[in-house]
């Protein structure tokens, strides 16, 4: 199983390490042709505005939309979740628009309000260490979508078909359970 991590900016090395530990072959993706032989893709945390600009510039918007339309799973964390969403609160436009969720950016405040907390994630863990950094949250999940975790009544992990979004940073911990959950999704869609 070969998983790519979009490597334009952000926490790329951390996701590569976690995916390898979870049992996948993980490669950084800097050019669109590197998407070709992948079974799944991770869009990491970083600055969504910066990553989005580089995606536009190098043709990643069309290439990743096509990747998603081929039913290949995509996992977005923090900035990655914002990039996947088809609605961003207070903005008319969106980035990839692949996943039917509405997100709010910097929803928990500025850096000094950033936090970590242990929380249950349905089907993944009873006590998952979640690191929130200037994090967004998911306001709404579209039809057919599942809410996997909430924090203070705000949706922070959701799945919709072959798309998975987390508002926090699983790549900053040593806990590979959410990455393993994503790899199971990839297996499911490969067969």
């Amino acid at each position: 199983m070969k998983i790519g991590v979009l490597a334009l900016q952000g926490a790329v090395a951390e996701h590569l390490r976690m995916l390898e530990e979870a049992g996948a072959v993980a490669v950084p993706v800097k050019k669109v042709e590197e998407l070709d032989d992948l079974d799944g893709l991770v869009i990491p945390g970083g600055e969504s505005t910066a990553i989005s600009k580089l995606m536009h510039k190098y043709g990643f918007m069309e290439a990743i939309r096509q990747f998603g339309e081929e039913k290949k799973p995509i996992f977005g964390t923090c900035a990655g979740a914002i990039l996947l969403a088809n609605q961003i609160n207070g903005q008319d436009d969106f980035h990839l628009g692949l996943m039917d969720i509405k997100v709010e950016r910097n929803a928990f405040g500025r850096q000094k309000e950033s936090f970590e907390v242990h929380m249950p994630i349905a089907g993944v863990a009873a006590d998952y260490p979640a690191v929130f950094i200037r994090a967004p949250y998911i306001m709404e999940v579209g039809e057919g979508g599942q809410v996997l975790a909430k924090y203070e009544d705000k949706i922070v992990v959701a799945r919709n078909g072959h798309y998975l979004a987390a508002a926090f940073h699983p790549e900053l911990t040593e806990d590979t359970r959410l990455h393993k959950f994503f790899l199971d999704m990839v297996k499911e869609y490969r067969s």
């Binding site: 490597a7 952000g10 907390v117 929130f132 950094i133 900053l172």
Partner: peptide
């Protein structure tokens, strides 16, 4: 328990800036 300003949260913020200007 919720914790703000932990070493992981502070270092993690810098991790999110990697590869950037």
């Amino acid at each position: 328990m919720v914790q703000v300003g932990t070493s992981r949260v502070k270092k993690g913020m810098a991790e999110m800036q990697k590869g950037g200007v």
